[in-house]
Design a protein around this nucleic acid. Structure first.
Lengths: 132, 132
DNA sequence: CTAAGGTTCGTACCCGGGTACGGAGTCAAG
DNA sequence: CTTGACTCCGTACCCGGGTACGAACCTTAG
């Protein structure tokens, strides 16, 4: 019976990330570096896999790596209101970005539309609008 | 009537950008570098100001610097359909980003909501949902 | 025991869009 | 003619999130 512990390569495969990504997270302080008997290969327990997955899911929710680290730190303990605050700031940011993009979308749609109505061999209304 | 020409600093101020930004655009090939009599200060005509403004407005519409360059190149001539294509690709990209962000927004809203209903001294539903 | 392939570590590089620094040259006012 | 402000140019650095490389170890199958 083997208590499951992985080498970086196996951990990476299991988590669906690149080995280099794991090392990057370690450098960033997001993932602890397991102690190794000197001159041997490091072993990663399931804990590391869980942490990795936590980071990946945080990213899917739009959190930055620093926020992921913060949320993980809060996961031990009752930092719910703090975690919630992080999420609310992220949400506000996401909403601001959506609004910005929506404005851009509007303008682009309008310009593309005018472009399509444009008779051939006449100046491009899109380029014109930008140049003005 | 004197034709106006600027030094980089004045051009930058007029366009509301940093001097370094102008140099950066020059390195990128977005803005030509005016010839100068050797060992003297370069002079920038209103053309440069117009180009700078074109770039800035392109950016406001979500175009990358490379796309801005492409659009500028097309502004001399009848490249309307090409320009339109660039804009359509940009629009598609913007719409994809909006959709991605909207999904994130949904999830975050749900999680933040659950977080607020959470009685004190119980595990955080937000953190829980990520850790799963 | 040896060879192949995995791991470790440092370091450098990628993207996009700039910002910052610093020495040397130039220009204009006093 | 000097002083101070501005310009020129190369180079390095910032952010975020990684990717890539290479040399030297370690491990494991045959």
């Amino acid at each position: 019976m083997r208590e499951e512990s992985y080498t970086v390569g196996r951990l990476a495969k299991k988590a669906g990330v690149n080995v280099e990504t794991i090392r990057y997270y370690q450098r960033r302080g997001l993932l602890p570096i397991p102690a190794s008997l000197p001159g041997s290969v490091r072993r990663y327990s399931v804990k590391y896999l869980e942490r990795l997955r936590f980071i990946k899911r945080s990213q899917q929710l739009g959190f930055t790596l620093d926020e992921a680290a913060e949320l993980m730190a809060l996961s031990e303990g009752y930092g719910c209101s703090v975690a919630c605050g992080v999420a609310e700031r992220r949400l506000a940011d996401v909403e601001r970005k959506i609004a910005d993009l929506a404005a851009i979308q509007q303008s682009l749609r309008r310009l593309v539309g005018r472009c399509h109505e444009n008779p051939p061999e006449t100046p491009c209304p899109l380029v014109d609008a930008i140049a003005n």
